[in-house]
Simulated scan of single mutants.
Amino acid sequence: MRLDILNKVCEIIIENRDNLTELDRVIGDGDHGVNLSRGAEKVKEEIPKMEGLKPFEVLNKCAMLLMSNVGGASGALYATALMKGAAALKGKDEVLPEDVVNTWNDMILGIESRGKSTKGEKTMLDTLIPAYEAFKSEIESGKDLKVAFEVAEKSAKAGMESTKDMLATKGRATYLGERSIGHIDAGATSSYLIIKTIAESL
């Protein structure tokens, strides 16, 4: 498990705390960046203790840290994704590209189930699903992990940007109705930052 990439993801979330909070302030609770960066700080602190852990143990540990330190919907959704991902990797000492495909799919299913949501509802899924589909296609056609993540990053960015024109049907943003249109979703943005960081770090 690349703990250096995990560390970089944490740093990016912390760096973007104010930006994510501002995005969420416009159409949400205004706490996405604050909450998520708090979780990222806790994970970053614990990374030295994760040396030697199996991949599923790392994801489980991150899930527990988010669960206990991140408030709001984002903590529960990201923690659920990580727990589902950990379950998919149980028993694996080495993570192959096809394992990443299966793990990512299970993470998305976890978010859909926990958030009672799907693509097209102005959420993180609008970033994650197109990115996953692009990634899966690249891996199945024989591309390596780095190339597949680079293609996924482009789809993730397009997915994130597509939330700007969507009407929110989940969370606090639903109260705004038509006024939620014209703003990019904070969860879609944090998901994009994670995918972008992984793509750049491989």
Rank of each mutant, 00 (worst) to 15 (best):
F135T: 08
A152K: 01
L125S: 02
I139E: 00
K116P: 09
E121V: 07
I129L: 12
M107Q: 04
G177E: 10
K119L: 15
L145V: 14
G187S: 02
K116C: 10
L96R: 15
K143W: 08
I184Q: 05
G120S: 06
R114D: 06
E161I: 09
L145W: 07
D106M: 15
R114K: 15
S137P: 10
T123I: 13
N105I: 14
D126S: 04
V101D: 01
E112Y: 07
M124C: 05
W104L: 06
P97N: 09
D99G: 02
L109A: 13
S180V: 10
I184P: 08
G142P: 05
E98C: 05
A168L: 08
M160V: 08
S113C: 10
K143L: 13
K143A: 13
G159M: 08
D165Q: 11
R179C: 02
A188F: 06
A158Y: 12
E140K: 14
K157M: 13
I108V: 07
L125F: 02
I129C: 02
G142R: 03
E138F: 05
K136Q: 12
D165R: 07
D106R: 11
E178D: 12
A168W: 13
S113R: 14
P130L: 03
D185H: 01
H183V: 09
L145T: 13
W104S: 01
G182C: 05
E94P: 04
K143Y: 10
P97L: 14
L167R: 09
I184Y: 06
E153F: 09
D99M: 09
A134T: 14
L145D: 00
